[in-house]
Each structure stands twice: as structure tokens, then as C-alpha cells.
Design a protein around this nucleic acid. Structure first.
Length: 932
RNA sequence: GGGCGGUUAGCUCAGCUGGUAGAGCGUCUGCUUUACACGCAGAAGGUCGGAGGUUCGAGACCUUCACCGCCCACCA
């Protein structure tokens, strides 16, 4: 016996185990060897992560597609994976060390630290997997991959070396976005522009040999220590006379030229702009154009470094206390000190508040510095070309299509991708350096001694061939020290040291390979052959640049084919203020709490029902509650069939049903199956969810189950047994159609109602119900429904509850036949005592029009004649309005001439209907007058 | 500054290639109708942000304005 309430918390874990035990999610099941493959590679969640609402939406949609295609008989591989998330994970572990007052990463050293991260991964890396399982994700977990596992790491190294050898990866010294908190370079995409309030200081720089000043404006006075010029626009009438002169940099005493450059916008700031090439991207370009020196004043933590700074000290005559006061200080402290000094010297012309955007690191939140370092870059521009071509040619399609524009916009302006990170957790760059000479404190390298190889052994071989001596691989930078002396001695070395680049790759570098690396590449595995290119990528628009574009580039370069045919871009689930949810903001809504309260099915259905293309989702718990109720409704419908002895009949054929009600439900079921199938195939998850919802609740439960009650409680016979079988058949179709959206409750019902089932619902066949359309049954039952609805409506309006006789007034044989056939049903559902055919209604009959026929509710003394006349008059007026509207259209010669014929016909039919209806109402009204 | 999206019932949102506005929740009225009160039956509620235009006809198309949001660029 089925319980009256569905209990998700009891059922869901059990059902998931049943799926796993049956291997239901395994790809390449033997019986599907000849089936068409379908593959989705999961956007790999961070290994440190836990499920947030974005994951819930993303994976619900993927799961709907996978379950749908699996039921349609395809060989489905939903390839799961996890991302090592370099910076994020390293930060988590470092914070943990700090909280536990254990040795810091620096103190324990690289090797020990990485070991520690692996331990953390082993400990908590499974969290997100178990959470995805709670959501119902039907991934093939037997194939789970991790970006740092052996195979994927091999893919990373191979790709790096190949691109390097093709000249598509290179090392370059230029300004990068530097995170002084994490002390690493980051890519342009990891920069968050944050609008913030600041000050704009106008500073007077004395002009050499005159009492004049040139005024520059800056929001960052501390960078003046690195100024090497002042730029003025060549056509700046007010200032161009100063071009060619020199200014003396206050506090520093450096003599800097006043140069002409278009970059100096006369409208901005003071019209003259200080040039600090080592600390500003624009100034860097100006500096290069004018051959200016680079004066870097910061260390990796963005603390001022002045004392041993050759570039700074050259040509400088710093004021007495400057070095002592500033060396080692933070940017903020330096700013304060410098402003005070300038103020006391009267060199600040004015200060004004300003709003400007300041770049922040998206991970650390720190204010970034443009910083001059050696980094590795990918030539993204070259790789982008085939990716753009593939999208233009429709080999990869964005859904909804407007995201194509976003994709192109970025790809057309793509910049070199900085892939090196100065952290430890990640794929260490497979590059080794040999040494040529001695710098101040370390050995230094030159470009021709850079060795890139997939393995250390290969690197050693290459180095030995180059040096023609044996080679020793140093393990850490401190190992360099003993070699300094050997180099200084000037004697030829009989053994050469090499050392591996300490940097690791951007996490997205390994993610970019996902579609082929998770399938086994570089090995030519059967999976790779079968499932690449994958079918669909499902992801949020926030990672189109980070991930989608880069997968396109890498996939096309290494596999010569697009990584996926369709890219479905879904909305972001936002918080109540419309803010993007993110861990760092701490505004995440926990989907697991929602699952605990309402069940995974309710959450999934809510997300699917709200996943209209091109719009963000703001989740409301009321909505989830509504869909939890929906699951209960379905549950009780199944319970109803069970109670009424509706058993599965394997011989049941929906094409051969006799009873009109059963023909009708077959018709409706087929129509729903068609709608759901079409909608899912078009990625219109909300339409699909809406179609099945309406069918279950408003058709199957509200009408079909109610209408068959008289049959089920009636005498045994062919009609009853057919109806029992049909009710269960329709329920089975519902379970199937709903399964991709609500896998748990449907699978459980499938089990509970399923004596003699051969497979799990997850592996059953998707309904294929062509040819079940039945216009005649539809018309007949439609009439019954209309009649019952009309009676109920008017009954509620006049607030009469007792059973009443129903009079079919002056109806034709056809309608009378229907009335007789359905009288039992009408009596039951509309609370009617008897159904009679009469020519003239008795006095006190309330008359209503149903599909052009007058039916009467015999109220005897209960009817209020005045109220009834008012009601009919109102209906008549409404009818007149309808006729007037249609007449206006049909009376317009333009309409008749220009509108399509079928539209005109439709209007004419409407007119006919309205006229008939009007006549009937008039008739009823007239009769009423007579009665009075 | 460049681009994109939004503005529809009290709330959250649907509305496909133009043909007299829909759902869920909420509200109101009435229901122990033997599957379900996480329910049943009914009802109220919208000049579809403003203004122009195209069209026989516009919530849907065009122009423009207003407000909200997002992405990209920009430390003068």
C-alpha cells in the first residue's frame, strides 16, 4: 500500500543506490553498442567546492538531457570530473594551516605543501560528488577524472610542449596584472574592475631652470617615485611650449623630460600626465614609444623597494628622509607620506574627490598592480581563428544564439593569455633553465638555454646534448648557491646545473583540454573515438571566455574537430538582490538545505521550470514548495490507481482502446509526449516542464481520474478492465515523461507500481506515441468538460449547493445522445440529480449556453429572477461586444483584402458563433420575461 | 565610452516565426466530494515602462526616451 505522503528523504538515497547498483549510468552498456552516442562533459566543479545553486541548475539541466537521451536509447556518457582550482585550493589549504597554527606553505616547502594539498583533496574532494548524487546527477562515476590525475597531467604537458614547439606558447617580459597578496600573475579575465571612490591629486612638478611648474593629476601619488617623464599632447595650446624641457621630480630629484604624446588628453586631469612605465599599462606603451627607462619601485608584495634599487637610484637625488621613511612600506603608507611631504612643500595644487574603477583580483580581492615580470603566454589570437570559423560555419551552435555575439566580440579582440602562476598547486611548467652567468645574488639564464620537454629525463637529455657535459637537476633555488662560486671561478664546468621553472599553469589551461583529455587523450582510447566531438556543453555565460572559448581553441587545434556541437548557455541563479552568487561574497543559497526540506525533485523541477532562455533566475522557496506539492499530487494519483485495482496489462495497446475516455487520455498523453520531446530537444526546459505539469495535474488528475471514477466503481466488464489498464498505462507514460525532471519520485513509483517490470525507469524507453490523435474523442470529452465547468461556475456564482435537475432545452439528437451517454459522469461531477430533454424550460430555470446549446438548471423556487435577468443581460452585452469587435474587423476593407484568408475565415466563424450564442441568450432572456 | 539583457496580474516569472494576455504563489468565496487540505470547486486582479512609427492588426517588429541589471574597456 502506498503511503499518502511522498517522503523524499527516505526514498532518494535508496533510489540512487539502486541506479548505481544497476550500473544505470554507465556508458557503453553492451546492449547499446550500436546506439548513437551522446556525450556531455561536466563543467568540472572545484575540488574544494560544495554544491551551490549554480551547480544545481547547471547539473539539473545536464541531467535532464542525459536522462532524456538515455531513455531515447542513446549510448549516453555524462563524463564527470573535478578541477584542481589552483589558486582557490592553495588559498584554502594555506588558510587552514594558518588557522591550525601549523607551519606555513613557505616554511614547509613546496614538496611537503603539495603533499598536504593532496591530503586535503583526499579528505574533502568527494564532498561535491556526493552532493551531485543527492541532486540525482546521472554521471558515469566509474569514469571520474581529476585535472591533476596522471592522465590529464600527461595531456597538459603534451599540449604545452606541442604549443611551445609550434611557437604558440612563449615566454615574455611585459607588464602583467599582478596580485600582490597572492604574489602571482593572473590573466586579464581574473581582473575585477571595481568602482571605488578616490582622490585626484594635482601635483606641481617644478620645471628645470625656471620658477614655473607643470601640474600633473594622479590618483596614485606614490607611483611618482617611478615617474620617468611627463607627457603633453603635441597640440595642447596651453602646455605645448613646455615640450622638450625637463621637470624635476619632487622628493626624488630625478630630471625627467616633458614629452609630446597623443596619449595625453588635454581634457583629462590637468592636461599633462605623469609617465610611470613600470606601473601602468598605458604608460608602458608611452615609455616604449619614447625609449624611456623602466623604474620599478615595488616588490612582489607591492611594498616599496628603494634602497637596493639600481633603477630607482640612478639619476635620483632623493631627499634625506625618503629612503628611510619609505623603503619596505606598503602602497597605502607611501601614498600618505608622499602626500604629506608634497603638501608641506606647497606642491599640491588641489585635491578633488573622484570615482574611478580599480582593478582587483577576483580571488584575493587585493588591488592589483601592473608588474613587470617574465611570464608564459599563449598566442590566443592565432588559436582563436579556427574557433571563430567553426562557430561561423555552424559547427558549434550557441543556444540561445545571442551569446554568439559575446563570443565573437571577445575572440576578435583577444589578448595573449598569461598562463603562468607563481603558486605551487597545479601543473608545474615543463621548462628547465640552464645557467650562463652570475647576477647579483643568483645565477641567471639566457633564452637559448631554455629547455621545454614533457619529462625531466627528456629535459636532461636535451641539456646534455646542448652542454656536451653531464647535467644535474637542482631541486630548489637555494641549491644554486654552491654553484655561484664555480661560475665565478671562470673554469669550464664538467657538470652543468639545470633547474625547473617553479611556476604552475593557470587552472583553465587544463580545463580547456577537458573534452578530449577526460576521454583519454593523448591515448587514442575507444571513448575518445566514440564520444568526441561531444554533443552538448551546458554552462553559464560567466565562463564563456574562461572556458568555452578556450575549449574551442584547444579542441580544434589538437583534435581538428570542435569539442561540442551545441553550447547551451543558461542563466545565472542570482540572490534576492540580483547579485551573482559567489563564495567570496558569501551570498550563496544552499541547495542542499532546499533538498532537505522539499526533496531533490522539487528543486530540480523548479530550476527547470524557471530556466527560460536568456533570463536570470531568482529563486523563490514558494515556487519550490509548489513543485513539492506537485510530486505529492503525482504520488497520490498513483495511489489512487492502486486503490482502484488498476493493474498493468502487458497486452494493453493504446491504439486499440474502445472507450471514449480512454481514447481521449491516449490522445492527450500523445500530445503531451510530443510537446515534452520537442521542448527538450530545443533546450526549452521551462516549456517541457510546463507541458508535463499541466498534463499531470490539469488533465490526468483533474479530469481523467475524476471521470473514470464511475467506471471504476461500476460493474465489472470490458469497459472497466480496459479503463483500469488505460489509467495505469497513462501513468506509466507520465512517469517516463517526468523522469528526466523528477527522477527520484518517478523511479520510486515505477518500482512500487511495477510488478514484473523488466528495467529501471531510468533505462526504460521514452514514449513514442505517434498516431494516437483522436479528434472525435477530444470533441466529445471537451464538451463534457465544458458542460461541467459551466454548471460549476454558475453554481458557485449563485451559491447553490443542492443537487439539481439538468434540462437539455430543445437540443438536437446529437447533443441529446451525448448528454445521455455522459449523464452519470455529469451527475457526479456537477452535482446533478437528473438529466432530461425538454422543449420549454420550467419556470425558475437558470439557463446557460454551452457550446451553442441552452441547458437549464432547474432551480424551482431558488432562482432570483431579477438577478438572473441581470446575469443574462450582462452575457448578452458581452456577446454584443464580441460581435462588434469582429464586425469592425470584417467591415474594414483593408482587413478583408490584406489579412491572410484563414485569419479572415476565422473571424467569420467567430462572428457566426457569437451570433448563434446571442440568439440563444436572447431566447433564454425572452423566456425569462415570459415567466415573470 | 562600447556591447547585451530586462521593464507583462500583489509577488516570482512564461508568452515561439505579429491575429482580442498565461502559470505558480498570494488574495477572496465555497467545500470532511472515500487519491491528495502539500487537496477540491469557483472568482477577482493587467490601458503588457513612456512616446512615436510600421501594419488591416503590435506585449511581440522599428525609432526614441526613462529606469534597473550584466559584460567589456578605462587606476590623469
Amino acid at each position: 500500500m502506498i503511503e499518502s505522503r511522498y517522503q523524499p528523504s527516505e526514498v532518494e538515497p535508496r533510489i540512487y543506490v539502486a541506479w548505481e547498483d544497476a550500473g544505470a549510468f554507465r556508458a557503453e552498456r553492451p546492449e547499446r553498442a550500436k546506439a548513437e552516442p551522446y556525450c556531455i562533459v561536466i563543467p568540472p566543479p572545484n575540488v574544494t567546492g560544495s554544491l551551490h545553486m549554480g551547480h544545481a541548475l547547471n547539473n539539473t539541466l545536464q541531467d535532464i538531457l542525459c536522462r532524456f537521451e538515455r531513455m531515447r536509447g542513446r549510448d549516453v556518457l555524462w563524463q564527470p570530473g573535478m578541477d584542481h582550482a589552483g589558486i582557490a585550493t592553495q588559498a584554502v589549504v594555506e588558510r587552514q594551516l594558518m588557522e591550525r597554527q601549523q607551519p606555513s606553505s613557505r616554511e614547509m616547502g613546496r614538496e611537503a605543501f603539495i603533499k598536504r594539498v593532496w591530503e586535503w583533496k583526499a579528505e574533502s574532494g568527494g564532498t561535491i560528488i556526493s552532493q551531485l548524487k543527492r541532486l540525482g546527477a546521472s554521471c558515469d562515476w566509474s569514469r571520474e577524472r581529476f585535472t591533476m590525475d596522471e592522465g590529464l597531467s600527461r595531456a597538459v604537458l603534451k599540449v604545452f610542449v606541442a604549443l611551445y614547439r609550434e611557437g604558440l606558447i612563449y615566454k615574455d617580459k611585459r607588464l602583467v596584472n599582478w596580485d600582490p597578496k597572492l604574489k602571482t600573475a593572473i590573466s586579464d579575465l581574473e581582473v575585477q574592475q571595481v568602482e571605488s571612490k578616490g582622490q585626484l591629486w594635482h601635483i606641481k612638478y617644478p620645471i628645470e631652470g625656471s620658477g614655473e611648474f607643470i601640474v600633473v593629476a594622479t590618483t596614485r601619488p606614490e607611483t611618482m617615485l617611478g615617474d620617468v617623464a611627463v607627457a603633453v599632447h603635441p597640440e595642447n595650446e596651453r602646455l605645448k611650449h613646455l615640450i622638450g624641457k625637463n621637470a624635476i621630480l619632487p622628493l626624488v630629484g630625478r630630471r625627467i623630460p616633458i614629452i609630446a604624446d597623443d596619449y595625453a588628453d588635454p581634457e583629462k586631469g590637468s592636461g599633462a600626465v605623469k609617465i610611470t612605465p613600470a606601473h601602468d599599462f598605458n604608460d608602458f606603451e608611452v615609455g616604449r614609444r619614447h625609449g624611456l627607462p623602466l623604474v620599478n619601485i615595488f616588490d612582489a608584495a607591492a611594498h616599496l623597494t628603494l634602497k637596493n634599487n639600481d633603477a630607482f637610484l640612478k639619476d635620483a637625488h632623493p631627499e634625506a628622509n625618503l629612503l628611510e621613511s619609505l623603503d619596505g612600506k606598503s602602497r597605502e603608507a607611501a601614498r600618505k607620506w608622499i602626500v604629506e611631504q608634497l603638501q608641506s612643500q606647497g606642491l599640491i595644487e588641489k585635491t578633488e574627490p573622484t570615482t574611478h574603477v580599480v582593478p582587483h583580483g577576483d580571488r584575493s580581492g587585493a588591488v592589483l598592480e601592473p608588474y613587470l615580470t617574465d611570464q608564459w603566454y599563449v598566442d590566443a589570437k592565432t588559436l582563436a581563428q579556427p574557433a571563430m570559423t567553426a562557430v561561423r560555419e555552424g559547427k558549434t551552435v550557441f543556444v540561445p544564439p545571442q551569446w554568439e555575439a559575446t563570443f565573437f566580440n571577445w575572440m576578435e579582440n583577444i589578448q595573449p593569455w598569461c598562463i603562468s602562476r607563481q603558486i605551487w598547486w597545479g601543473h608545474q611548467i615543463p621548462a628547465w633553465y640552464g645557467f650562463t652567468r652570475v647576477g647579483t645574488t643568483t645565477l641567471t639564464t639566457s633564452d637559448d638555454e631554455l629547455i621545454v620537454a614533457e619529462t625531466e629525463n627528456e629535459a636532461v637529455d636535451l641539456a646534455e646534448a646542448y652542454y656536451k657535459t653531464p647535467v644535474v637537476v637542482l631541486k630548489s633555488s637555494s641549491d644554486v648557491i654552491p654553484w655561484i662560486e664555480k661560475f665565478q671561478s671562470g673554469k669550464p664546468l664538467d657538470v652543468h646545473p639545470i633547474i625547473r621553472d617553479p611556476d604552475v599553469l593557470d587552472t583553465w589551461f587544463s580545463s580547456a583540454l577537458g573534452p578530449f583529455s577526460t576521454l583519454g587523450w593523448p591515448d587514442q582510447t575507444p571513448e575518445l573515438k566514440r564520444f568526441y566531438p561531444t554533443s552538448t556543453l551546458v554552462t553559464g555565460f560567466d565562463i564563456i571566455f574562461f572556458w568555452v572559448a578556450r575549449m574551442m581553441m584547444m579542441g580544434l587545434h589538437f583534435m581538428k574537430e570542435v569539442p561540442f556541437h551545441d553550447v547551451y548557455i543558461h542563466a545565472l541563479v542570482r540572490d534576492e538582490r540580483g547579485q551573482k552568487m559567489s563564495k567570496s561574497k558569501g551570498n550563496v543559497i544552499d541547495p542542499l538545505a532546499v533538498i532537505d526540506e522539499y526533496g531533490a525533485d522539487a528543486l530540480r523541477f523548479t530550476l527547470a521550470a524557471m530556466a527560460a532562455q536568456g533570463r536570470d533566475i531568482k529563486l523563490s522557496s514558494q515556487r519550490v514548495e509548489g513543485y513539492r506539492n506537485f510530486a505529492t499530487k503525482l504520488w497520490n494519483a498513483a495511489r489512487f490507481t492502486e486503490i482502484n485495482g488498476c493493474a498493468r496489462d502487458s497486452a494493453f495497446d493504446p491504439r486499440k482502446v474502445q472507450e471514449t475516455l480512454n481514447r481521449w487520455i491516449a490522445h492527450e498523453t500523445a500530445s503531451t509526449a510530443d510537446q515534452v520531446t520537442t521542448a527538450i530537444r530545443a533546450y526549452k526546459f521551462n516549456d517541457a516542464a510546463g507541458a508535463i505539469y499541466r498534463f499531470v495535474w490539469n488533465v490526468y488528475c483533474d479530469w481523467y481520474l475524476e471521470l473514470i471514477k464511475p467506471v471504476l466503481t461500476g460493474p465489472d466488464g470490458a469497459a472497466k478492465s480496459e479503463t483500469r489498464a488505460a489509467a495505469v498505462w497513462a501513468l506509466d507514460q507520465i512517469l517516463k515523461l517526468l523522469h528526466p525532471f523528477m527522477p527520484f519520485v518517478t523511479e520510486e513509483l515505477w518500482r512500487v507500481t511495477g510488478a514484473g517490470r523488466e528495467t529501471l525507469l531510468a533505462l526504460s524507453d521514452w514514449p513514442s506515441l505517434e498516431g494516437l490523435g483522436d479528434a472525435q474523442a477530444e470533441a466529445e470529452i471537451g464538451w463534457v468538460i465544458d458542460l461541467i465547468t459551466s454548471i460549476r461556475s454558475v453554481r458557485a456564482e449563485i451559491n447553490v449547493n443542492v443537487a439539481l435537475p439538468l434540462a437539455m432545452i430543445k437540443v438536437g439528437d446529437h447533443v441529446w445522445g451525448r448528454a445521455q451517454r455522459w449523464s452519470e459522469f455529469i451527475k457526479r461531477m456537477a452535482k446533478i440529480s437528473s438529466v432530461n430533454r425538454i422543449p420549454i424550460p420550467k419556470p425558475g430555470t437558470l439557463q446557460l449556453i454551452v457550446r451553442g446549446e441552452i441547458v437549464g438548471l432547474e432551480l424551482a423556487g431558488l432562482v432570483d429572477l431579477a438577478a438572473e435577468r441581470a446575469r443574462l443581460t450582462k452575457e448578452l452585452a458581452k456577446c454584443d461586444a464580441d460581435i462588434a469587435r469582429v464586425d469592425a474587423k470584417l467591415g474594414n476593407p483593408n482587413f478583408v483584402a490584406r489579412a491572410p484568408e484563414e485569419v479572415v475565415e476565422e473571424e467569420k466563424e467567430k462572428r457566426e458563433e457569437a451570433l448563434t450564442r446571442k440568439a440563444k441568450i436572447a431566447e433564454a432572456l425572452q423566456r425569462l420575461e415570459g415567466a415573470e
